Amino acid sequence: MKRHNFKKLQIWQESIIIIADVYAFTATLPDYEKFGLRTQMNRCSVSIASNISEGTSKRTDKHFIKYLEDSLGSAFELETQLIVCKNLNFIPLEKFESLAESVKTLQQKISNFIDKLDD
C-alpha cells in the first residue's frame, strides 16, 4: 500500500472546514453547556480529521480502514449531537440544516473511500 498524504485527501480537507463551522456554532451555546455539548461537539469534530490523518500513517489499507471507521463513527456522533441541539432549540433550523448536510456528505465520502480501499 502506498501511504496517503492526509492533507491531500478531500475527506480530511472537508473535515477541517467542519471543525471551524462546529467551533463557530458551539461558541453560541449556552454557558451551562460549556462542559457538555460544546466540549463534546468540538472534540468530536476534531476526532473526524484526527483519525483520518492518523490512519494515513498505517502500513496497510486494513489498518487505515479501522481509523476511517473511527472517523466515520465520530461523524455520526456529531450528527446526533446536532440533532440534540436542534431538539433543544439551541440552533436555528437553517444553521442545523447546513451543518447536518455537510456532516452527512462527509459521512458518505468517508464510506465510499472505505469501500474503495476495501476492494
Rank of each mutant, 00 (worst) to 15 (best):
R3H: 09
R3I: 04
H4I: 09
N5H: 10
N5I: 12
N5G: 07
F6S: 06
K8A: 12
K8E: 09
K8R: 09
I11Q: 02
I11S: 06
W12M: 08
W12G: 10
Q13Y: 07
E14M: 11
I17F: 11
I18W: 02
I18A: 05
I19G: 13
I19Q: 11
A20E: 11
A20Y: 07
A20V: 11
D21H: 07
D21V: 08
D21G: 10
V22E: 03
V22R: 00
A24C: 08
T26E: 08
A27L: 09
L29V: 02
L29D: 01
P30T: 02
P30L: 04
Y32D: 15
K34W: 05
K34Q: 10
K34Y: 06
K34V: 06
L37N: 00
R38L: 15
Q40M: 09
M41W: 06
R43P: 13
C44D: 03
V46I: 12
S47N: 04
S47H: 05
I48K: 00
A49Q: 03
A49G: 11
A49W: 02
S50Q: 07
N51H: 06
E54P: 15
E54G: 10
G55H: 01
G55M: 02
T56S: 10
S57I: 07
R59L: 15
R59W: 13
T60D: 09
D61H: 06
K62M: 04
H63C: 11
K66A: 12
Y67L: 10
L68A: 01
E69G: 06
D70E: 14
L72E: 01
F76K: 03
E77A: 02
E77G: 02
L78G: 00
E79A: 07
T80G: 08
Q81V: 05
Q81S: 03
Q81G: 01
Q81C: 05
Q81Y: 11
L82C: 05
I83Q: 13
I83V: 14
V84F: 15
K86P: 13
N87D: 13
F90N: 02
F90W: 06
F90G: 04
I91Q: 00
I91V: 07
I91E: 00
F96M: 03
F96S: 01
E97D: 15
L99I: 00
S102T: 03
V103S: 08
Q107C: 13
Q107K: 10
Q107A: 11
Q107I: 02
Q107R: 04
Q108A: 15
K109V: 02
I110A: 04
I110L: 13
I110R: 01
I110Q: 03
S111R: 09
S111C: 13
N112I: 10
F113T: 00
F113L: 09
I114Q: 05
D115K: 13
D115C: 14
K116M: 14
K116A: 14
K116R: 09
D119M: 13
D119W: 15
